[in-house]
Design a protein around this nucleic acid. Structure first.
Length: 456
RNA sequence: GGCCCUGUGGCGGAGUGGUGACGCAGCGGAUUGCAAAUCCGUGUACACCGGUUCGAGUCCGGUCGGGGCCUCCA
C-alpha cells in the first residue's frame, strides 16, 4: 500500500502489534497555511486506516513539534516573546486547526527541545564512529562517509554541485555535509543554547527527527511520512544519521505528499501565495476542507481553488443528505469494504470518495423504495466509511440545520406554515414562504412524508 | 546543469493492457401543485509522433507543455 523509490510494495508491518508511523511536524513560529495541513490530513487518514486494519491500540503515530530553529529564534526576538511562549502559542493554534479538519490527535507529539539529550547522545555516537567531525561552526555529518547516501531521493552528493547553488561553507569538508550541532553565536538567547561535549550551541534541524523517532518508536519504524520537499535533504539526512548511529534501517516505508498549488504554482510562504487554515475556517466547514484535500491523491499536486471547495461542499452535502434519509434505520452492519480497499491501495482517497458517493447513491435508492434492511446496512456502511476518511462526523441534522437554535425554531415554524398552506392548496403562500427561505440560503425539500430543510 | 514527477471529457479526478470509475456542471425522463431534493438515462476524454501487442489512456522511445527538489519550506 505504500510507495517507496517509486515502487509500490505491499505494506506489512515489522510487528503487527506495534505499527509505527512518524510524520515530520511543524516548526512552530507562525500560523500554518493550508498546504501545511495536507500531510496532517493525509497521514491522519493513513492513521485511521492502520487503526482499522491492525487495531487502534496497535498503532503508534508520532508527529513532532520543532520548537528550536533559526526562524523561531528570529521570531522570538522580533516579537519580544520567549521562545517557549511563542512555540506553545503556535503549537496550540496548530493543534486546534488540525482538530478542525477532523485530524485525530497523534499517539505522541514529541517536542524537539525535550530531546536534546537524545540528540547529543546520537551525535556522540556518530562522532565516535567516524561519521561526523567537529569544525569551527559546529559538528557536521560527513556524507561521503556513508556508502549509499542519497538512496531515498536517488541522488548522489556530486549531483548537486553542477547547479552551483550549494552555499560554500568553509566549515564543511564537503558541500553536502550537514550540521548535527551548531555552535552558539553571539547574541543568541540563552533559551536557544545547550551545553554539549563539543561546546555550547543547539542541534541541527535533521537530528531531532532521528532522535525522537528512535526514542519513541524504535530504531526501525514502519512508515515515515512528510511533504515531498522533505525527501531531500531532510529525510535523506535522517536516514544517514539514524542508520550510521544505529546500524539498522531507519524506516521501512516512506510516503511523501505532494504540494498544494495556487494557480499551478506551489503554495509557499516565500512566494506569498498562502491561504491560512484559520481564515478558510471562517467560510468553510473543516470537513469540507478535508473533503477537498482528499479529493486528490496524496502524491499528486492539488490545485487549491474556491471551485474545489465549492464542489467538495456540494458533494459532501449530497452524502449527508443520503445519510439523513437512512439515519433512523439503525442496527445495520457494514459489509462493504470498497472504501477500505481503496485506502489500502496506497491511500487512494479519490477512489475512496468515489465509493463513498456510490454508497450515498445506494442509500438514496434504498430510501426511495423504502427498503429498510438495505437502509440500515447502508447507514452503517456510510458511517464506517466516514470514520475511515474522517468525514460524516456530524449528525445529518447538525450538518444541514446546525447553527442558532432559535433560528432553527423559526425556520421549522415557517416550514410548517408552508405545509399548512399546501394542505389548503394555497400555492401562492406556500411558494412565498419557500422563496423567503431560499432568499436566506435555506432550501426546502419535500417528500411524501413531509418536508425538511437545509442551509446551503 | 543534475535528479524527479506530471499532461485524461466543460471542470475536478481515479484507472490492475481487453465492452468510457466517481463527483460537479449540462441535457432527457421519472417524481412534484410548480419547484427543489432524489432516482434513472445521457458524454466520438485520454498532449503529440512513432514502436511493441491480436488489442494501449495503461508498456517502450522521442517531441512539446506543466510542476517539484537540488536553499528555509508540508
Amino acid at each position: 500500500m505504500a510507495k517507496a523509490n517509486k515502487i509500490a510494495r505491499v505494506f506489512v508491518p515489522a510487528d503487527p502489534r506495534r505499527v509505527t508511523l512518524y510524520v515530520c511536524g511543524p516548526t512552530v513560529y507562525n500560523r500554518a497555511h493550508i498546504g501545511n495541513f495536507r500531510p496532517v490530513i493525509v497521514f491522519d487518514t493513513l492513521f485511521r486506516v492502520l487503526r482499522q486494519t491492525f487495531g487502534a491500540e496497535c498503532v503508534l503515530y508520532a508527529r513532532n513539534y520543532t520548537d528550536i530553529e533559526d526562524k523561531i529564534i528570529a521570531a522570538s526576538q522580533a516579537s519580544g516573546q520567549s521562545i517557549s511562549a511563542l512555540t506553545q502559542k503556535y503549537a496550540g493554534i496548530y493543534a486546534e486547526d488540525a482538530e478542525a479538519v477532523n485530524a485525530l490527535p497523534p499517539s505522541l507529539t514529541p517536542w524537539a527541545t525535550d530531546h536534546v539529550g537524545d540528540m547529543i547522545a546520537m551525535v556522540t555516537r556518530l562522532v565516535d564512529r567516524g561519521y561526523a567531525y567537529v569544525s569551527a561552526g559546529g559538528v557536521y555529518f560527513h556524507v561521503s562517509g556513508m556508502a549509499d547516501y542519497g538512496r531515498l531521493s536517488g541522488r548522489k552528493p556530486g549531483d548537486n554541485e553542477a547547479g552551483a547553488r550549494v552555499a560554500v561553507d568553509p566549515d564543511k569538508r564537503d558541500p553536502a555535509d550537514f550540521a548535527l550541532w551548531k555552535f552558539a553565536k553571539p547574541g543568541e538567547p540563552d533559551e536557544a543554547i545547550w551545553d554539549s561535549p563539543w561546546g555550547r550551541g543547539r542541534p541541527g534541524w535533521h537530528i531531532e527527527c532521528s532522535a525522537m523517532a528512535a526514542r519513541h518508536l524504535g530504531q526501525t519504524i514502519d512508515i515515515h511520512g512528510g511533504g515531498i520537499d522533505l525527501q531531500f535533504p531532510h529525510h535523506e539526512n535522517e536516514i544517514a544519521q539514524s542508520e550510521c548511529a544505529h546500524g539498522t534501517e531507519m524506516a521501512r516505508f516512506w510516503m511523501h505528499n505532494g504540494f498544494l498549488d495556487m494557480s499551478g504554482e506551489k503554495m509557499s510562504k516565500s512566494l506569498g501565495n498562502v491561504v491560512l487554515l484559520g481564515d478558510l475556517l471562517q467560510d468553510w466547514e473543516g470537513e469540507v476542507i478535508r473533503f477537498a484535500m482528499l479529493s486528490g491523491h496524496y502524491r499528486a499536486p492539488l490545485d487549491w481553488t474556491n471551485a474545489l471547495l465549492e464542489q467538495a461542499r456540494t458533494t459532501l452535502g449530497r452524502i449527508y443528505g443520503a445519510l439523513r434519509r437512512v439515519w433512523l434505520a439503525e442496527g445495520g452492519e457494514a459489509e462493504d469494504r470498497a472504501v477500505l480497499n481503496a485506502l489500502e491501495d496506497d491511500l487512494n482517497t479519490p477512489m475512496a470518495l468515489a465509493e463513498l458517493s456510490r454508497l450515498a447513491g445506494e442509500a438514496n435508492a434504498a430510501a426511495d423504495r423504502g427498503d429498510e434492511a438495505s437502509m440500515a446496512t447502508l447507514r452503517a456502511e456510510l458511517l464506517a466509511a466516514g470514520a475511515l476518511l474522517g468525514l460524516l462526523t456530524k449528525t445529518p441534522a447538525a450538518w444541514e440545520q446546525g447553527g442558532d437554535i432559535e433560528d432553527k425554531v423559526r425556520v421549522d415554524a415557517l416550514v410548517q406554515a408552508r405545509l399548512d398552506a399546501r394542505a389548503a392548496k394555497d400555492w401562492a403562500e406556500a411558494d412565498r414562504i419557500r422563496e423567503e427561505l431560499r432568499a436566506e440560503g435555506i432550501e426546502i425539500m419535500d417528500s411524501a412524508g413531509g418536508s425538511t430543510w437545509r442551509r446551503l
